[in-house]
Design a protein around this nucleic acid. Structure first.
Length: 464
RNA sequence: GGCGACAUAGCCAAGCGGUAAGGCAGAGGACUGCAAAUCCUUUACCCCCGGUUCAAAUCCGGGUGUCGCCUCCA
């Protein structure tokens, strides 16, 4: 598989540190609110990367953190008059709710800052021992001038960064680019004991400490949104490599943004939609398909019109799935037709194209198109006359590929008796060529969100 | 100022040197009692101007436009 590596700005062959194993870390949410559609993109994309690597036989260890202590959480806790822990607990729970509805699997580890304070302190100590820090008033700062590789990820040098940076007035840092590893305690804030006094970790250090805990000092893939390249990931490199002297991550992957009216969706601009809000109007699987219908590094625009069109696309996929299930339920074991081997071979070609697309830097857009081609092939060639074996083959193949993308896992709920009776009644009317009554029943059911389809082998239904 | 991304049909979106995937929407046809679903057909001077090449949406140079990072941010 080829992967675009931010640090080299090139697509590279993905070669794991340990053959057959992939260790990956993705920056997770700060839990002070529901997450928005923009936040959802990396969660979905890297969930798919993980699924795909597993599909290809890798043993994947996937870590995604929760930042559960930070300024925004403290602020929220004050506003709500509850503890920081309560705020964090609540939104971790809400994260999992939304993530599940988006088809995002849980990571192997979801470490939290507050549960890794000793690890964080130890890492800061190591950096300190290497002479890369200075401490003022209980604040431990990273001295970026001492790390010669600083800027290697974002391809910036210190002078240029400083030229564009706003320097805070009265800042005690030696250099504007320096960043805090350990913050001293301010009144009323949560704090832990440390060699530098009571305080709490800076933002960047947590990811270094927690990723090393679960993945070792060098991992295969570190991922996140493009806005994390600088300063967050740059600082992670400075801390981690400053402590260990080893490369922190072999591959850096960054997703592009979700825009609204061509502008980045962000909290500060106020143009964001939370996943929770969107879920009230659209099934979140639509959002998932929306995300993977374009390449993960491209910016995409978010709008209701787009979701509406994706909704129709997803319907097409589900109809195809349910058609196969319907055929399967009706099919009997019988002699396979001569051309069925050809059909299976033809279907298999779409799998090749699917894999080829995914191998090329996770080209999910192309992979999705391979699935649509498979669907057309199935719709055109699998029917009442097909043997059960071949129908099953098509179904399994289709579900296999959809599963890699985390799609089509929902099952239709059964109809209640009342509706089944109505369908029976309509069938009777049709036999008697009482079209007026038959159509009335169909319209009636339509109003209840049940769409009927008359097929040669019987009546099929689906929910709108 | 530094670093970077993008510009393909009405909309969304692949494409990575060999003559334009796929989805949505639209049109026509087949199927159907009528529908629905499905299938078939149909819709592109690939932002502009130069250059390289037998061959460019694709490579190079120059424009134009849009966006992002450099500050919490996915």
């Amino acid at each position: 598989m080829k992967v675009f590596n931010t640090i080299t700005r090139k697509k590279e062959e993905l070669i794991p540190l340990v053959p057959g194993e992939i260790k990956m870390y993705s920056c997770g949410p700060t839990v002070y609110n529901y997450f928005h559609i923009g936040n959802a993109r990396p969660f979905i994309i890297f969930d798919i990367l993980r699924r795909y690597l597993e599909y290809r036989g890798y043993k994947v260890t996937f870590v995604q953190n929760f930042t559960d202590v930070d300024d925004k959480i403290i602020k929220k806790a004050k506003e709500e008059k509850v503890s920081e822990k309560e705020v964090a607990e609540k939104f971790i729970k809400e994260y999992f709710k939304d993530a599940e509805a988006l088809g995002i699997r849980k990571a192997d580890y979801h470490p939290r800052v507050t549960e890794n304070i000793p690890e964080i302190i130890n890492l800061i100590k190591r950096i300190e021992e290497n002479g890369l820090t200075y401490t003022i008033n209980g604040n431990v700062y990273y001295d970026t001038t001492k790390f010669s590789d600083y800027g290697k990820l974002s391809k910036q040098n210190l002078e240029e960064l400083e030229a564009g940076a706003r320097v805070d007035v009265g800042d005690e840092k030696k250099n504007p680019m320096d960043f805090v590893l350990w913050k001293n305690q301010k009144p009323g804030e949560p704090a832990w004991d440390s060699p530098w006094g009571l305080g709490r970790p800076g933002w960047h250090i947590e990811c270094s400490a927690m990723s090393m805990k679960y993945l070792g000092e060098t991992m295969d893939i570190h991922s996140g949104g493009q806005d994390l390249i600088f300063p967050h990931h740059e600082n992670e490199i400075a801390q981690s490599e400053g402590a260990t002297g080893k490369p922190f991550a072999k591959y850096w992957m960054h997703n592009g943004f979700i825009n609204v009216d061509n502008e980045k969706m962000s909290k500060s601009l106020g143009n964001f939609f939370t996943v929770r809000e969107v879920s009230e109007v659209y099934d979140l699987e639509i959002v998932r398909l929306f995300m993977i219908s374009s390449h993960y590094r491209s910016p995409i625009n978010f709008s209701n019109e787009l979701l509406d069109s994706i909704k129709s696309s997803l319907e097409r996929l589900y109809i195809a799935k349910n058609n196969l299930k319907y055929l399967l339920s009706k099919a009997e074991e019988k002699e396979r037709l001569e051309n069925e081997v050809d059909i299976e071979e033809s279907l298999l070609k779409h799998k090749d194209r699917f894999i080829e697309a995914m191998e090329d830097d996770l080209n999910t857009a192309d992979a999705v198109s391979a699935i649509f081609d498979l669907v057309r092939d199935i719709n055109a060639n699998i029917n009442d006359n097909t043997s059960k074996t071949t129908i099953q083959y098509a179904f399994d193949l289709y579900m296999e590929l959809a599963g890699v993308l985390g799609l089509l896992s929902k099952e239709e709920k059964n109809l209640d008796e009342e509706i089944e009776a109505l369908i029976e009644e309509r069938q009777k009317a049709r036999k008697e060529k009482n079209w007026a009554l038959a159509d009335e029943i169909r319209d009636n059911l339509n109003g209840k969100g049940i769409i009927l389809e008359d097929t040669p082998s019987g009546v099929k239904w689906r929910r709108a």
